[in-house]
Amino acid sequence: MFGMIKNSLFGTSEVWPCRVLRKGEKDDVAYEEREYDGGKFATVELTGKPFDEALHEAVLKLLKYVGGSNDQGAGMGIMAPVCTTVFPGQDGSLQQKVKVLLRIPSQFQASPPLPSDEEIQIEEREGMTVYSTQFGGYAKEGDYVNYAAKLTSTLGNEATFHEDFYFCNGYDPPMKPYGRRNEVWLLKK
């Protein structure tokens, strides 16, 4: 537990490598089209719990893993963002199923430590192109649903993207009170 707290407060923070392909704004919604690198990710999948509760539980597991709860006892540092795959229902609300991803920091990409928690899986994922919009504050389910709807509406027929899932992203530790960064990503088809 101490390793997780130390890593969260004092650990290095690396940002998932990406390239901005284009920027746009329509109806007061700014967005970017970005291309993200693939790599190895620590993942936790949870079902049967409300979004905010599931996200909190999964993030704690992943923070423990990168904080040293692994076969090497390695404090790996933090990789931003914490990326959560969500599945909207017909009414736009989120189903009780999430998959939370944390990209393994660069120095551990070749050979990631094995998690002590059996619910954490290490996955190799391909690169992807997304449409992204950003917002601040302490994001909750309603904020992500709202911004996903805004981005979907803004893109309209101009872009093709997956509609059966999207990504909710948080960049900041919980103890950062101001200047918080959250994003919604729609995966380009």
Rank of each mutant, 00 (worst) to 15 (best):
Q134T: 15
V100P: 01
K189M: 09
D164V: 06
G77C: 09
E118K: 11
Q72G: 11
T47G: 07
L187T: 07
G75S: 15
M1A: 15
D172V: 03
E33I: 07
K176H: 06
A139P: 03
Q107I: 05
G127R: 07
E126H: 12
D164N: 15
T154M: 04
V44A: 05
V82G: 02
Y171V: 01
K99P: 01
V29D: 05
E118P: 12
G67T: 00
A159L: 05
F51W: 09
A30Q: 09
S93N: 14
H56F: 11
V59W: 04
L62H: 01
E32C: 07
C83V: 13
E183K: 03
C168S: 09
T160S: 15
P174H: 13
E158K: 10
F167R: 01
L187N: 04
E183Y: 06
D37C: 09
W16I: 06
F167E: 03
L101A: 01
F161Q: 03
L151Q: 03
C18H: 14
Y31L: 02
V145H: 02
F167I: 02
V59G: 04
L101K: 00
E25R: 08
M175E: 10
E123Q: 12
A80S: 15
G142D: 12
T152Q: 09
P17S: 04
Q72M: 13
T12Y: 12
T85L: 14
E119P: 04
Y166M: 02
M1T: 15
L9V: 14
T43W: 03
T152A: 12
L186A: 03
L102G: 00
F108E: 00
G170S: 06
E53Q: 13
